[in-house]
């Protein structure tokens, strides 16, 4: 390669990077979205549960527990099997206990939990996602 063609190639690379910069800089930012609160307007009796799109809320002996339904493998929404009290993922069949503990499948990790508070009027719950 001659020096001339090397310089030409380098200039082209710099030009390409200069063109890509404003494009990638425009695409990358995530607009700010405040954390979402999901309001549950009922008090669950102890031992019962409520299936929501993003989590399942359990009224356990030690208080309310909200277990995320996002699979820790590749993010599919896990289903709650009510008879076996287990989560199962429809995509690659990972399984989890009701409290989110990992049982089997490619996921390897426990399902995370969301923070749950009693709602201000005391008649329900607020789950922070």
């Amino acid at each position: 390669m001659t020096r001339r063609s090397l310089i030409k190639k380098m200039l082209m690379a710099i030009a390409a990077a200069l063109c890509a910069w404003p494009v990638i800089g425009f695409i990358m930012p995530v607009r700010y979205r405040p954390p979402r609160k999901v309001l549950i307007r009922e008090k669950l009796p102890k031992g019962s549960f409520l299936i929501e799109p993003e989590f399942v809320l359990f009224a356990s002996e030690t208080g309310p527990v909200a277990v995320s339904r996002t699979c820790t493998h590749l993010g599919c929404t896990v289903s709650f099997d009510e008879t076996r009290k287990q989560f199962i993922c429809p995509c690659h069949q990972s399984m989890f206990h009701w409290n989110g503990k990992y049982i089997s499948g490619p996921a390897q990790k426990d399902l995370p939990r969301f923070e749950v508070k009693t709602s201000e009027d005391g008649k329900g719950y607020v789950v922070l996602i």
Binding site: H73, L74, C76, S79, D81, I88, P90, C91, H92, Q93, G105, P106
Partner: peptide, 22 residues
């Protein structure tokens, strides 16, 4: 709810994802 089969051309990848790193 318990088993989703993806688009036909993705099924092979779906199976491999059960056994290998993503």
């Amino acid at each position: 709810l318990h088993l989703i089969k993806g688009p036909w051309f993705f099924l092979g990848i779906q199976e491999l994802l059960r056994h290998m790193a993503p």
